[in-house]
Design a binder for these strands. Structure first.
Lengths: 206, 206
DNA sequence: CCGTTCATGATACGTCTGTATCAGAAACGG
DNA sequence: CCGTTTCTGATACAGACGTATCATGAACGG
């Protein structure tokens, strides 16, 4: 039986093509024909690997989630010694659109986010637990930092974690909207982290 | 000359119908036919008052901006004595989706925001100066509060203002996404304002 | 009452969409 | 070489979209 190609590889190629279109021209421009052209395959093949568009949309969303998670983990590992501050910094800067990859990811994510606001099918068929996970991760790190005496004991870790994540998301929106560039957003985020942790600590991070 | 109706009134009725659809079912559901049905008029009349859909979209966006500005001003005036803290609090809570009106406004705004990310026509034909205005307003208030000794002299008003606005926008996104309700978001915002200003001041605000 | 304005109705056109169906070509394992 | 798998091509269909064009009715100022 001549099974030349891995179906999962083809599906991922097509799914990534959709994400590129969603990032560059918006999710409403990601039609079956456009995705086929972007992936360099025929429309017929897209229908071959994804029987319906909803399946393609959901699969690409799963790929997007995987890439986001992988980026967060990579950024955490890349920021040297594993301290609460570096974990929080790595996590939040992974979400912030400061380079080409995070720009593509956040732009595509915004499209899905807006679609999920009105298409309840997408929201129900997709676990929206991602932001909650990140928020809990940060809250845990803040508690650890508090026990280690690295941040003020009077702060509320839960409220602060929610605030930091919301701050980062809001900064990301302003970057996508063209209100400021990624470096300016990173400066604002760094400023707030500096006020939370010691002022001199963040400067040593790359 | 029998000029029975005010054209501006009719245009506003139709434009508001589009905003209701954009908020409830998304901007992609706001077709000419749907808008006509929502406004209770014929499709022909929508074409009569708006020669093209882009004109309708831009006009409704202008109405949305007016309603947002009016809401901010009303909230500022409603929060009693005009202090920097009450102005900042009123401004930010006007943006936060905590009641029916702000929910509709922020939901419609999100649709336009996402559309503007990819349709450069909309972005160019519309002054995106709104967030900048709000940020400058808050920064000014923070400077005033700093001169009056109401907040710490070591904080950066500009970075703090950008952070507060981004925080509020991020909290709003989490409310729309169903991650938390409006009251929880308001609690997080109040917590951060309490840490910025005196802890006992915000409690007196309604 | 008469003419202008406001408004409706039915209908149509061209385009794009997701989806489906035909046939057929290219590649590779046995 | 043969058969299965992978992939393409052309084409079609029904529906929705923005837009346009007909005719026609209702209301009100002069």
């Amino acid at each position: 039986m001549p099974k030349r190609v891995d179906h999962e590889v083809r599906r991922r190629q097509i799914g990534e093509a959709l994400l590129r279109i969603a990032s560059a021209r918006g999710l409403q421009s990601a039609t079956m024909r456009e995705v086929a052209a972007e992936a360099g395959v025929s429309l017929r093949l897209v229908q071959y690997y994804f029987h319906t568009k909803e399946e393609l949309l959901l699969t690409a969303l799963a790929y997007l989630g995987e890439r986001l998670s992988a980026r967060v983990e990579n950024r955490i590992r890349a920021h040297g010694p594993v301290s609460p501050r570096s974990v929080v910094y790595g996590t939040l800067t992974a979400i912030l659109p400061i380079d080409a990859e995070s720009l593509e990811l956040t732009r595509a994510y915004t499209g899905y986010y807006t679609l999920a606001l009105t298409d309840s099918d997408l929201a129900s068929r997709h676990g929206a637990t991602y932001p909650d996970k990140v928020e809990r991760l940060i809250a845990t790190q803040l508690r650890t930092a508090q026990e280690a005496g690295q941040i003020e004991p009077t702060i509320d870790p839960q409220a602060t974690a929610a605030g930091l994540l919301a701050l980062t998301n809001g900064l990301g929106s302003s970057v996508l909207g063209g209100q400021r560039d990624g470096q300016a957003a990173l400066a604002v985020l760094t400023y707030h982290l500096d006020r939370l942790f010691g002022h001199e600590a963040t400067k040593s991070a790359p």
